[in-house]
């Protein structure tokens, strides 16, 4: 399995990337860590004319704590965010969820924004972004726009990004005082693609559950404290259009949503 031929370009400025994207559009692919894209290239499931390597664009390499969010640039590998000293205090859900992404060997190269842009329905970072109500920043030569996670994820490997746009940054809302964050996942082996992954945000009088690996994109559901949780989770499980695949049946996925969901909300793990 070798990729089909392509031209390769290694810009050092964001403006150059945007210029190339406006010229090539669909015929270009962005590579950062390549931990999803390289496999897809090797299998020839995508055959771009031009590969744009953004690893040497310094201005995309930042982790910034702002007033309301933690902003992570497109050049930041997952290992860097996970080992960033303030991650547990600023966005605790990420500190819990990121060790579940692949293996340390893939986190060494795979980027935060790359995982969000790839939009695999079982991936942990899209699930965190959606559950926390985060945003992505998309830039093109004609301008910049901010899109909510809700609007960004549109289906399996499908997002609101236009062919001439670069996902330059993701923004995770900062943790709120008095709020608890929880994460759990079931996979064949640790680090494999999640069969079901769950993120919970529990505040005073609010319970939000994010569910990955079941529907064609990460989804969230809000519950009321005191509500019949089993019935609500059962309804949720049936609403996600779970599919059978080589890893698990749809029925097993629904069962995991019911059982893991209840455990995560009521027992905290």
């Amino acid at each position: 399995m070798k990729p089909a031929s392509f031209d390769y370009v290694r810009p050092t400025r964001k403006a150059e990337v945007l210029e190339l994207l406006s010229e090539y559009g669909q015929d270009a692919r962005i590579i950062a860590g390549g931990q999803s894209l390289m496999a897809v290239l090797n299998m020839r499931m995508t055959q771009p004319k031009l590969l744009i390597d953004i690893n040497r664009v310094e201005e995309l390499h930042f982790i910034e704590e702002r007033k309301n969010c933690l902003a992570v640039g497109a050049g930041v590998p997952q290992v860097e965010l996970l080992s960033w000293p303030r991650i547990s205090e600023t966005v605790p859900l990420l500190a819990l969820a990121m060790p579940w992404i692949g293996h340390f060997q893939t986190r060494n190269r795979g980027t935060v924004c790359g995982s969000v842009a790839h939009a695999d329905p079982s991936a942990e970072l899209p699930l965190c972004l959606k559950t926390l109500g985060g945003e992505v920043v998309l830039e093109s030569r004609s301008g910049s726009r901010t899109v909510t996670a809700e609007a960004f994820f549109q289906g399996i490997l499908t997002t609101d990004r236009r062919p001439d746009e670069l996902l330059t940054e993701v923004r995770f809302p900062l943790c709120k005082p008095g709020t608890e964050y929880r994460f759990n996942e079931v996979a064949m082996r640790h680090g494999d693609f999640a069969i079901v992954s769950l993120a919970a945000v529990i505040g005073a009088g609010t319970i939000r559950l994010g569910i990955g690996g079941v529907a064609d994109r990460p989804v969230t559901r809000d519950f009321e404290p005191g509500q019949d949780l089993s019935a609500a989770l059962n309804e949720t499980a049936w609403s996600l259009d779970a599919q059978d695949d080589v890893q698990a049946t749809a029925a097993y996925r629904r069962q995991l949503v019911r059982d893991l969901g209840r455990r995560l909300i009521e027992e905290g793990h």
């Binding site: 390769y8 590579i31 931990q35 390289m38 090797n42 690893n55 893939t106 060494n108």
Partner: peptide, 15 residues
Amino acid sequence: GKSVRSCLMLAVQAQ
């Protein structure tokens, strides 16, 4: 100094 899968990286990226 970081372990990576060399099938998921292009030679030109290692320049």
